[in-house]
């Protein structure tokens, strides 16, 4: 559940740092609901939207499967394709959890991504906006409008 509206911008610098250090091709930081928070590497807002929706679904599935099988959500997912690899990780914040999707090729490795992920988690925890308990709650009917607004902000179009 999203407690408050998802803001964009605050996570851009830490994510850019992570992308540079870990040499990943694509990175999307999102709320578990699929609301985008920051992205790097995507040229098309529709691709970001699709990546967020699919990643959110995978994350939710792993959460529930973990609860069912192991009594706790499964954390972290790595898939190695022929040329590219995918890594899905959770980023805990004071106000909840974010999900990070990283895509990388032979320029990087799982070990390198995991190494710099720890630094990213610390940087995001430090950069996250303070929890505003008085902020209006996010409503399901506003989801699409907020998603479009965030994507427009990320791609420089209002």
């Amino acid at each position: 559940m999203i407690r408050h509206s998802i803001s964009v911008g605050w996570a851009d610098a830490p994510l850019k740092h992570f992308v540079d250090d870990a040499r990943v091709e694509l990175a999307v930081l999102m709320h578990p609901s699929g609301q985008v928070v920051a992205q790097h590497g995507f040229q098309n807002r529709l691709d970001v939207q699709t990546a967020c929706a699919l990643s959110a679904a995978i994350n939710a599935t792993a959460d529930q499967l973990g609860m069912m099988i192991d009594g706790a959500p499964f954390r972290g997912l790595h898939y190695a394709g022929q040329a590219r690899q995918l890594h899905l990780a959770q980023v805990p914040l004071a106000d909840g959890m974010l999900v990070l999707l990283s895509v990388f090729d032979e320029e990087s490795s799982l070990g390198i991504v995991q190494l710099y992920l720890d630094e990213l988690r610390a940087a995001l925890a430090a950069a996250a906006p303070p929890v505003d308990a008085a902020a209006p709650p996010a409503l399901a009917e506003d989801f699409e409008r907020e998603l479009n607004s965030n994507l427009a902000a990320l791609f420089g179009r209002k």
Binding site: S108, S109, L110, G111, I112, Q114, L115
Partner: peptide
């Protein structure tokens, strides 16, 4: 992957970071 399979280190050596960076 740069992931540790097995190893041992004295205190102060960050094994995971070291393994990932050396493999890279």
């Amino acid at each position: 992957d740069g992931i540790v399979v097995d190893g041992t280190a004295h205190v102060g050596v960050k094994l995971n970071a070291f393994a990932a960076l050396t493999a890279s």
